[in-house]
Amino acid sequence: MTTWITICDTCKCAGWEVTGMEKTDGEALAELIEAAASGATDVKTRRVSCTMGCDRACNITVQANGKINYSLGTFEATKSDAQAIVEYAGKHAASANGQVPYREWPQGVKGHFVSRHQPLPE
């Protein structure tokens, strides 16, 4: 089953307005996640404008039908954060119900979980 990484492309980290960045932090993170997931067969990405987690920018969600879904935040637009997100999403895709044992979490996602969403009823 496919796991989706939904990336907020409007996220701006504190101080963004003085950095002179031509794109938002969310756009930069989205590009890195898309590149890291480019060869994955069980993980897909999509961008959305605003997940309403501005205090925790940059935000993503990890989602799949019939599985527990997760919101994560406070990422930076770095290759290591993007790789950790994609690695975690791959483990989510491989799990039966969306739960990935803590010992299997990539270090780069630890401390970034915001909330867990139970699957919708059938």
Rank of each mutant, 00 (worst) to 15 (best):
M21R: 15
C8I: 08
G98C: 03
K91I: 07
D81R: 09
T10E: 10
W16M: 05
K110A: 12
W4S: 10
D81A: 13
E104P: 00
R47F: 04
R56G: 04
T19H: 11
C13S: 14
V109L: 12
D42N: 13
G108S: 11
N97E: 14
P106A: 09
G90V: 13
E31S: 08
S38W: 00
L72Q: 04
N97C: 10
S95L: 11
T24Y: 08
V62Y: 00
T74P: 01
K91W: 07
W4Y: 12
A64Q: 09
Q99W: 14
D55T: 08
E104C: 02
Q63A: 09
D25R: 00
G66W: 07
R46C: 01
A89H: 07
Q83C: 02
G98I: 05
D81S: 14
I68Y: 13
A28F: 06
G39I: 02
I60W: 00
I68V: 12
I68P: 04
I5M: 05
Y102K: 01
V86F: 09
T2D: 10
Y102A: 10
C58H: 01
I85R: 08
K12I: 08
T19M: 09
K23H: 13
K44G: 04
E34H: 05
E76P: 04
Y70M: 08
A30L: 06
C13Q: 15
N59H: 03
A30V: 06
V43F: 13
A82G: 08
D55N: 04
A40K: 14
E34M: 05
Y88M: 03
R56M: 08
A89E: 10
S95Y: 07
T41F: 03
L29C: 04
K110G: 05
P106D: 02
R103L: 03
T6M: 02
R46Q: 03
E31V: 01
D25Q: 01
A30I: 06
A82K: 13
K23V: 14
A94R: 15
R47P: 06
G66Q: 06
S49A: 07
T2C: 04
K110D: 13
I85W: 06
C54R: 10
T3M: 11
K110W: 12
G26T: 08
F75G: 14
G73R: 00
P106I: 08
K12W: 00
A89T: 07
T45P: 00
F75W: 15
R47C: 07
E76L: 15
T6Q: 05
V48H: 05
N65D: 10
A96L: 12
G66K: 11
A77G: 12
D81E: 15
P101V: 02
I85E: 03
A94M: 09
T24E: 05
A77F: 09
C58M: 01
K91G: 03
A82Q: 07
T45Y: 08
A96T: 14
S95H: 12
C50F: 02
